[in-house]
Design a protein around this nucleic acid. Sequence first.
DNA 1: CTTCATGCAAATACTTTGCAAGGGC
DNA 2: GCCCTTGCAAAGTATTTGCATGAAG
Lengths: 151, 151
Amino acid sequence: MQRAFDDEIQILEAHLKLQGLNRSSRRDLVVFTFLSSNKHLSVDDLYALVRRKSPAIGRTTVYRTLKLLENAGLAQALALKGETRFEHVLNRRHHDHFICNGCGAIFEFSSDEIEALQEEEARRIGFRIDGHKHQIFGQCGKCLGSGGGAR
Amino acid sequence: MQRAFDDEIQILEAHLKLQGLNRSSRRDLVVFTFLSSNKHLSVDDLYALVRRKSPAIGRTTVYRTLKLLENAGLAQALALKGETRFEHVLNRRHHDHFICNGCGAIFEFSSDEIEALQEEEARRIGFRIDGHKHQIFGQCGKCLGSGGGAR
DNA sequence: CTTCATGCAAATACTTTGCAAGGGC
DNA sequence: GCCCTTGCAAAGTATTTGCATGAAG
């Protein structure tokens, strides 16, 4: 089931080695579960998924593994209101998020033009961009259609 | 000292009336202190500022007033990592933030072109934009100059 | 005098950390 | 055997809520 996450695993192993850490079956389970999902998972989302496969795992391990992935550059935390969600970051260009206030759905998009404009602006103020988080809130088509538009 | 915040107060009063709430000296103090600052304040920042003028105020009141301002559409919360900061929102167009990972400084900018591109993208997926938060992380010129660039 | 405002303390959430036990090399 | 990994419980933070008191209309 765990498709080709070779690139991710390679990066993870390099990071682990660098830190004098190891892989483990539980660590792997959390990692693969995370990588297998294409959603933006909260800690508890991931915890629940992982628990289905291995109920003995503790929430702490999920927290720790997610932090590990973050440090390895494989996951990025999105600080939403009230909760933190994580998304993959490997081989993905900077991208932005549309977040529906109605149903919570998250749509991604990326625009070279926006990226370029950001860079231009950054250059103007002498800022070096390392990353960005761009969240656009509103109502998705589905919610607009089902009365959300009258909100 | 509290310059012309007429617009803000008008909106606030409308919101209060709508909710059956009132102004009060403490509420006002928090509100004016918030409005007088041009920074992106955390709850504790504002709490500290307010305390200087009136040490008897409780942290709870600051939380509550900030939430009030948020609901009235006068303040917007930025969910930074580990802390929430608030900024003014009245009469301000959507704008973006450069956040320095080195010194924590926040620079604002706004770009009509980026706004337009967002709208275009939103239209494409049938999304109605209500607001957005755009945070660009990196190193500011000052931090780059003082060795931060070698990070 | 009824309702709102407020501080304090308690209650929640979310996340991290200490520690003892288990596992991998 | 040594060090890393992990679960549990405890400790931290950040924020909200319950409640009794005080203020406002």
